[in-house]
Every structure is written in structure tokens, then in C-alpha cells.
């Protein structure tokens, strides 16, 4: 899922302080699971903003809603009547959702309530870690199911590098060396011979180097 983190509240206050009617819009998708921008977090933020306005002696209305997804037309379009009642919307969806809301409601300031961080997993309750960089050309089949693009700090296709020590990356002692993990996994799988054949250069044009990406699946189109 996409992992996000709520923006510092002072930053959000700075975005909304001049508005009189603010809607905090949560998203029931990824940001709910990573506890950054679901209905629960929208309620907390809206309550905090109401208290901020009130202690500042300002008359402002702050309400909250949540949508099934902010990255799909039906759900975003369905709140048109609600959005029309507010001066600004703080979207707590990922960057994609925030932009989709802004594209749909063009005359309305749509402000970010979270910082979108990465594609990752829930390692433990309250702990999320990066696993994928959406490079557009998955090579997990040859690396034992561990991604060198997401897990190696240098995104090396052929590692480990000289900075790997005792299974840790030179970037931080907290960070596992991605290629050390790959080595250990391939050993378990009895596939260490993969290290004898270097990987071909990666086609980065399928990643961000090719500009913003778009997928069209004709059979799914109406």
C-alpha cells in the first residue's frame, strides 16, 4: 500500500488559517491502513483545527468526511454537494488522491494533510517500511523476492557494494543491506549461481526517467 504520514499540525494550520469553512477529507484506502489519513485521523485533525480556531477567537467551521477512495471518479464525484459548502478542503489521501480531488474541484483550494512517503508494508503495528519503488519493470524473480531497487540504498542491480558490513548498509546501521538479504535468501533457495551472471543494465525509461507514466488497458475500457 501507499504509506503516508500526517503533516505537522502547525503546517496544516498555516495552510488553513485564513479560511472560514474547512472540510477535512479522509480516504478509506491505504492511508486508513497506515493510520495517516483515514476517518479516525480526519476526526482528530478536524477537532484540533476547531480548537485552534476557537482559542484564536476566530469563527470557523471545520467538518470531516471520508471517501472510499480519493483516486477514483465515482467516490470523488459523489461528494460534490458537500465540497461546495466549504472554502477549502484538507485532503488526507496520498498525493494521488489530493491531486485527483484538486482536478475534480478546480475552483477550490485543495490542501495536503499528509506527506506521502513510499509503497510499503506494515512490519508491525505502528511500523511501516518501504518495499517497492514502482520502477515499472519488476525483477523480483531473479533476486529471491527481495527488491534491490527498494531495499538497496544505491538501487544497485549487482551488489552488494563495498559499504555493506555485517549485513548492514553504510547509510545507517539500522538499515539492512538489501543485497545481503538477497544473498541470504538465494542461499536458502539454492540459487546462489545467480550471482555468477551479472544482471543486464536496467531500463529506467519504464521508471520515472521516462516521465509521468500512464497505463491503458483496452479490455478494461468502456
Amino acid at each position: 500500500m501507499i504509506i503516508a504520514k500526517m503533516k505537522p499540525i502547525e503546517e496544516i494550520i498555516d495552510e488553513v488559517k485564513d479560511h472560514k469553512k474547512v472540510l477535512v477529507a479522509g480516504c478509506d484506502g491505504c492511508v486508513t491502513v497506515c493510520e495517516a489519513g483515514g476517518l479516525k485521523e480526519a476526526q482528530i485533525l478536524a477537532s484540533a483545527l476547531r480548537m485552534y480556531f476557537r482559542q484564536a477567537g476566530q469563527d470557523a467551521v471545520v467538518d470531516e468526511i471520508s471517501m472510499t477512495r480519493q483516486c477514483d471518479h465515482p467516490y470523488v464525484d459523489a461528494v460534490a454537494d458537500t465540497v461546495a459548502n466549504y472554502d477549502a478542503v484538507v485532503s488526507m489521501a496520498c498525493g494521488a488522491g489530493i491531486q485527483f480531488l484538486a482536478e475534480t474541484y478546480r475552483g477550490k483550494p485543495i490542501l495536503p494533510g499528509v506527506n506521502t512517503c513510499f509503497i510499503g508494508v506494515t512490519e508491525a503495528k505502528g511500523e511501516w517500511a518501504e518495499r517497492c519503488q514502482a520502477c515499472g519493470d519488476c525483477l523480483l524473480a531473479s533476486t529471491g523476492g527481495i527488491c534491490p531497487i527498494a531495499r538497496c540504498s544505491k538501487r544497485m542491480s549487482n551488489g552488494p557494494c563495498g559499504g555493506s558490513a555485517s549485513g548492514k548498509c553504510e547509510v545507517s546501521k539500522e538499515t539492512d543491506c538489501g543485497w545481503h538479504l538477497i544473498y541470504e535468501r538465494l542461499k536458502e533457495l539454492g540459487q546462489l549461481d545467480r550471482f555468477e551472471k551479472p544482471m543486464d543494465p536496467k531500463d529506467w525509461a519504464k521508471s520515472r526517467d521516462g516521465g509521468p507514466r500512464k497505463i491503458v488497458k483496452e479490455v478494461s475500457q468502456i
Binding site: P8, I9, E10, I13, A48, L49, M51, Y52, Q55, A56
Partner: peptide
Amino acid sequence: EILDKIGV
């Protein structure tokens, strides 16, 4: 933490 930031 929130209360300190919102002036309460």
C-alpha cells in the same frame, strides 16, 4: 503534543 501546537 497536539494541544501545545494549537494553543490550548
